[in-house]
């Protein structure tokens, strides 16, 4: 009899846990966006204070160095392309840019995402591109709250995007890039495609952005495909400031 009572009590306990969980899940799923925005209204000033307190000179310099490396890596490529396009097409582009501080980044967050201190109030919208170092595209805005925004990096596991890998003689090779996490990405190309370490990876389109560099080419003997391993223009673990741009508008 005592065992039956205990068994009944256990079942009630389990049912209670499931019931509470299901109610919470339903309510939270319905109001996820609003609840997230409310939470970040409270967290944003706390994390901003934390960043200002913990930012040592070394960390600041490392962050600036990372941004400078990203800017230098793509500057020559974009400068030449810019001159060529302006001359041939007679088109100019205008982009509104919003500077944003990084509130949360890996490993402070378990996913390849960033939380920025700019949101709907600053004109940020879902789908906006996020740049590091002023030029390298590192991700897109996926969720916008009143004063904060969540960005998913191009290197996030499960994320894929189309890109172009530069080859010799100004040729490009279209690839499908898959995120591997922590700033790493990979793509497969036919064996003998001629991609070398250091090749630039850019988004397709006339006003596209630089999204990475090939860091390793894995070519196995007898295989039909080679695997390219790439890195984002900037190390997401060291980012402190990024720029948010609207999709390109040509004039």
């Amino acid at each position: 009899m005592r065992n039956r009572a205990r068994g009944g009590q256990k079942t009630k306990h389990i049912a209670l846990v499931f019931g509470v969980g299901a109610l919470l899940f339903a309510a939270a799923a319905y109001g996820q966006g609003a609840l997230g925005g409310l939470l970040w209204r409270v967290l944003e000033p706390v994390l901003a204070v934390r960043n200002s307190v913990t930012a040592s000179e070394v960390a600041i310099l490392q962050s600036e160095l990372a941004a400078a490396k990203a800017a230098r890596a793509d500057r020559d490529l974009l400068l030449q392309e810019n001159k060529d396009l302006k001359q041939r097409l007679g088109r100019t582009s205008t982009q509104a840019r919003t500077l944003a501080g990084v509130l949360l980044r890996p490993p402070g967050i378990p996913y390849d995402t960033l939380v920025l201190d700019a949101g709907a109030a600053e004109g940020v919208g879902a789908g906006d591109l996020v740049l590091a170092g002023g030029a390298g595209v590192i991700g897109t805005v996926v969720e916008v709250y009143p004063t904060t925004a969540r960005v998913i990096l191009l290197s996030a596991p499960g994320e894929t995007h189309d890109a172009l890998v530069s080859l010799a003689d100004a040729q490009v090779l279209p690839v499908r890039v898959e995120g591997q996490g922590s700033g790493s990405m990979r793509a497969q190309v036919p064996a003998g495609a001629g991609v070398v370490v250091g090749a630039s990876v850019v988004l397709p389109g006339v006003f596209a952005g630089y999204t990475g560099t090939v860091t390793h080419v894995d070519a196995k003997e007898g295989e039909s495909f080679e695997t390219l391993y790439m890195q984002l223009p900037a190390n997401p673990l060291q980012l402190r400031f990024v720029e948010i741009v609207k999709p390109y508008v040509s004039q």
Partner: peptide, 28 residues
């Protein structure tokens, strides 16, 4: 709410909450 749930975790909506629920049930 703070971290979000990107990628395939989006289908779970709240992965860490689910982890807590499953862990609690397992403990019982």
């Amino acid at each position: 709410l703070a971290y979000g749930a990107p990628g395939w975790l989006h289908y779970i909506y709240f992965p860490l909450t689910a982890l807590a629920v499953v862990g609690s049930v397992l403990r019982v």
